[in-house]
Amino acid sequence: MAVIRNIHPLDRFLRPERLPHMWCPGCGIGIALSAFLRAVNELEEEGRIDSRKIVFVTGIGCTARASGYVRFDAAHTPHGRAIPYAMGVKLANPDLIPVVFSGDGDIVGIGGNHFIHAARRNMDMLVIMVNNMIYALTGGQVAPTTPEKIYTTTTPWGNPERPFNAVTLAWIAGANYVARWSVTHPELLKNSIKKALLMEGFRFIEVLSICPEVYGRHIGFRSPVELYTHLRKVVKIRGKIRPLETEYDWERGITLGEFVVRDEPGFVRRLMEVVKGGKA
């Protein structure tokens, strides 16, 4: 039998025997996952987090396969259900740190209702939504995040739908922390994850990603590098602007940055307070 060696500095957070992973060449999910693992690694080295308390929860989709590659307590739940699963984890043991890491279809498509209600409750969890703007695992169907007019296999004449701007959605639903980054800027993403991991309440980070195999082909890019380079032109980092001023438009640009940083009590603290107040 083959022996698998730990080699890469992040291998202690991975299951190296399962690598190479199933994602296509140039897929941005691995970049996002790498940024998350570096954030955890740095926080642990700084003595600010115990990685054994992390529960890594995913739904269904390309991104959701990440739960099988990380060496944390983890779950690969039914499609769209990562957020309520993570809610149960947190409420049953508030010492745990649930991190939902899943795709745009999973989180704001089939799981959209859970998303807005978890944000409304300020449920204590970090949600990292890797947005490749397409249903990739099933072969390239339209997603709630697909830009208008773009060809997909279920909108062969162009997408007639308007996409979600997940930043405004998370903000208006009440999240404590809302940011949007891109795999083209992995260090900014990592810093944002480090900050969000240590906060309470509902924290949401959207990560624009590249799907060269499906989305890239749909819009005419022939290689991962071409799509990566193009996405770098689409995204625009803006400081100190409000969620409503962010743009989500493949032509005009997609705004990156940190848009909401609030310090409102998370659901766990609220629940404890009311239960104690009722002298239960």
Binding site: I4, R5, I7, H8, S34, A35, V183, K190
Partner: peptide, 24 residues
């Protein structure tokens, strides 16, 4: 940081070196 596959990394050392290794 931009490798999607955990397939490349850089470590500071006394002498520059390029390595190709196999996990399996």
């Amino acid at each position: 940081y931009n490798c999607p596959d955990f397939a490349i990394f850089v470590v500071e050392a006394e002498a520059a070196k390029g390595e190709t290794v196999w996990a399996r």
